[in-house]
Design a protein around this nucleic acid. Sequence first.
RNA 1: GGGCGGGUAGCUCAGCGGGAGAGCAUCGGCCUUACAAGCCGAGGGUCACAGGUUCAAAUCCUGUUCCGCCUACCA
Length: 889
Amino acid sequence: MTQDLLPKTYGPAEIESKWYDFWNSNGHFVADENKTNRQYSIVIPPPNVTGSLHMGHALNNTLQDILIRYHRMSGYNTLWMPGMDHAGIATQNVVERQLAEEGLTRQDLGRQQFVDRVWEWKEHSGGVIINQLKRLGCSCDWDRERFTMDKGLSNAVREVFVRLYDEGLIYKGDYIVNWCPRCHTALSDLEVEHHETEGALWHIRYAIENSDEYLVIATTRPETMLGDTAVAVNPADSRYAKHVGKYAILPLVGRKLRIIADPIVAMDFGTGALKVTPSHDFTDFELSIRHDLERVTIMDSDARINERGIHFYGMDRYECRDRVVSELKEKGFLEKITPYKVSLGKCYRCKDVVEPLISKQWFVRVAPLAEAALEAVKDGRTRIIPGHWTKTYYEWMNNIRDWCISRQIWWGHRIPAWKCEECQRLVVAVETPVQCPHCGGNKLDQETDVLDTWFSSALWPFSTMGWPNQTPLLKTFYPTSCLVTGFDILFFWVARMMMMGLKFMGDVPFKDVYIHALVRDEHGKKMSKSLGNVIDPLMIMDKYGTDAFRFTLAALAAQGRDIRLSENRIEGYRNFMNKLWNAARFTLPYCENVDSGMNLKDFSDFTLPERWILSRLNRTIDAVHNAIEAYSFNDAAQTLYEFSWHEFCDWGIEISKISLGDSNPEVSGRSTAVLAHTLDSLLRLLHPFIPFITEEIASKLKSGARPIIRGPYPVTDNSWIDEKTEHDMQFLMGVITAIRNLRAEMNVAPGKTLPVILACASPDQTDLIRMNLPMVLNLARISNLDMSDLTPDFSPPQDSVTAIVSGARVCISLHGTVDPDAEIARLQKEINKLTIELESVEKKLGNQSFLSKAKPEAIEKQQGRQAELSLKLEGLGEALEKMRAMKKT
RNA sequence: GGGCGGGUAGCUCAGCGGGAGAGCAUCGGCCUUACAAGCCGAGGGUCACAGGUUCAAAUCCUGUUCCGCCUACCA
C-alpha cells in the first residue's frame, strides 16, 4: 500500500517546481500594503543584473527566506521586496567586452547607442539570477520587483541628489581621487582593494641648492618624482632643521623644491625626508593644500607620462619607473635600493593598479549624515547582530571621509546637473531644464558623469517603496524589520542606507541588521574562479535538491564564523530529507482518515511514550522559536534535526508500530492522532528551512490547514511539557539501550529474541516496565522477561551478562556462549571508567567550599550523579564477583 | 600600525562557567517490510601554549604563538 503512495527515495526535481509555481501563482508571496498591523518586511540586497547565483547569494537569500516564511506562517503581513542593481562598472564591462569581440569600442557607438545596447543586454541576458532565486525557493513578492534604473528609482535618485546639493551636502571640485586607468573612472575609497606586494624603497639624493650637501629621500614610486614640487621633513627632526626653508634641486628635472616642515612626516620611516608629489599621492595632496604648493600632474588618464614628464613623455608608468631609476643610477643620484613590502591599491572590478590622480569630481559631505547614522545604532533604534560588528561600524563612521560619487562611465544615473553655455553657471534639478534659470539661455549641457552605483543602492529601502511619494507601501513597511547581508558590504551599503534613510525618511531603514558570514570552501579558502574551488549552488541543487542545500546552509550559519562548505555535509542533510520522506511514507497510510490538525485534547489516557513525544515536541517548538528570533539559524536547524531523527523517528515511530495495529480502535486511533499531529507540527516547524518537501508531504496529510506556507506556525503548548514523563521515559529507553548494548557486545544477532532477567530497584520502576511491557519487549527483542524486585539476595543467573540502569539489574542469560575472561574485562573497564567519574564527584561533594558557595542546583546535581554512579558501580561489582566465581568453578 | 574572528575527535564544525558533543570518516553486527541515502552498537579528544580569577574553567581575564579577515596618509 505504501509503495503506491510514495516512492522509496525522495526525488526533489518535480516537486520543487510544482510547489513553487503553486505558491507563486496563488499569490502566497504577495504582501498587503493596506494591512498595517503585524507587518514584517525585508528588502533584498539587490544582486547585480550581471550576476548569477553564487554561494554568498544562496546563503544570504536562504536566511532571508527562512525569516520571511517563519513570520508569514506566524501570521505576519510580510513583504520581501526583490530587485536588482544596475551595477555600473560591472555591467558596462560586460557589454564592452561583447563589443570588443565585434571589434568595437563604446566610443565607436557613442553614448546614447551604447546605453541602448546595455539596456538591450539587460532585457535579454540580464537577471538570470532572478530565476535562480526562484529555484532556491525565495518567496519574494515578485509583483513588486524593482531595478535601480527604473523610472521610479531614478526619480528618487535625482530627488535625493538635488536636495543634498541644495543643502550644500553635495559639492563638486578638483580633488585627488583613486583613478582606474583601465576603467577610466574615479573610484571611491571602498572600491579600492589593497594587496601587499613585494616592492622596493629607492633612496635618491636631492642636492641642496647652493651647497655641497644633499638630502636622501626614500620612495616606493621613483617615477612620480617628475611631479615633485617640494621636500618635507618633520619640524621636530633635528637632522634636517637647518635645511627647512631652503631649496632642493629635483634630479633629472632640475626644478627648485622648497623644503618644508610638517608633522605628518614620520621621522623614523625611510630617511625621514619625504618627496612631495601633490598630483600623485593622497598625503602629498593634503600637504599641497596646507603649504600652498604647486601641483604638477605628469600622468594622463591612461597612466602614461604626459608632456610635463620631460623626455619620459609617452611612456607607461612602469616603463617610466625603470627608465627613471636607471638614469638616476647613471647620474649618481641613486644611493641604494632596499626591498620593501608595499600595499598596492587595485580596482575592485578589473584589478588594475589604481593611480591617485587629480580630477574634477562630485562628493557627498558625509560627516553630518554619519552623525545621525552613528546615533541610531548607539541608541538601539537599529541593532547590529552579531553585536561585535557595531564596533567596526562605529570605527568607520567616526573616521569617514567624503564620498566621491561621480564615475566617468556611461551606464548609470547621469548626474542631474547642467552647465549653461551662455553664463557657464550650473543648474541642478530633478526635471531636465529647458532654459537656464540664471540667464534664460536654452543651451544646457548635462554633466557627463554618472553616479556611483552605491548612491542608488543607498536609497533602496525607500526608493523601492515609491519614495518621494508617500505611498501606502512606505507607510506599512518602512522601516523594514531586518536587513540580511554579508559584512563585506557593511560600509558600501549598510552604512550609506542608514545615512540616507535617516536623512530622507526621518527614520532608520531597518530595525535589525543581521550580518552573516562568508561561504568558503571546505578548507577555509575563499571561493574564487582562479583557485578553481568554486562550488556552484545550481549544481548542488541539481544533485542533492534545494531543501537539502538550504538546510545545510542554515545548519552551518553559526554567528560570527565563516562557513566552510563541504559536499559531505550536504549529502548528510540530503539523507535527512530522505529520512523525513520515509517517516512520512510510514505514517501517511495510517492517517488517511485522521485530521492532523485535530485537537489532541479530545483524547485521554495517553500512554507514556505518547506523552513523551508530545513533551519533546513542545520543547522543540519552544527552542526553534527562540533560535529563529535570535538569528541562531544553526541552533534551530540542529534542534529540528535532532528531534526529527533521534526522537520522532528512532523512538516515536518505532514505538507507535506496536499500538498502531492494536485491535482496540481507541488505542490505535489515539496513537495515529499523536503520530499525525507530531508529523504535521514537525513539517510546519521545518517549512521555513525546507519548504518543498514539507509542503509536499503536508499536502498528503488529510485536512489541517493547507497549504502550510500560510501557516500556522506551531506555538508552544506548555501543558504538554512534563518533566516526570521525560524522566520515566528515559528509564525505559535506558533499559532498552542497555539490552541492545549487551547483545551487540555479545555478538547476538539483532534478529534473535532473548530471555531477559530484570530486577527493578523500586516499585516505580517495576510499574513503569509493567505498564509499557510491549514496548520494552519489542524494541529490545525480548522473548521472555523474568521480572523480580531487587532484594539483597538477588543473584543473576549463572552464565549471564549484566548492565545497570538507575540501579535496576538487567541480565541476559547466554547459555554457555559467554567468555568469562572477556566479560570480566568488559566489566572491569566499565568499573574503572565509572570509578574515576565517581571520585571526581565525591571530591567535589567533600569540598566544604563547594558546598557553601555553589548554587544549590549544582550541588543537587552532583548528589544525583553520586547516587546514580554508586548504584551502577555496586551492581557492576556484584556482576564482576559473580563472573569471577563462575570462572573458578 | 590599529581592530576583529578563530585554533575542540582523522575531516568539517557546535558548545562559551558546573558530567567533552554532532555530521562525515573508521570498526563490529544487521536487507528487524518507512528509510542500506537505512538500523543496532563501538572506538577515538591533557578543548593551541603559559599564567591568573573562581568552590568549579574548553567556557572569564592576561600574555605567547599560529591562521584568517577588515582597516590605515610611514612616502
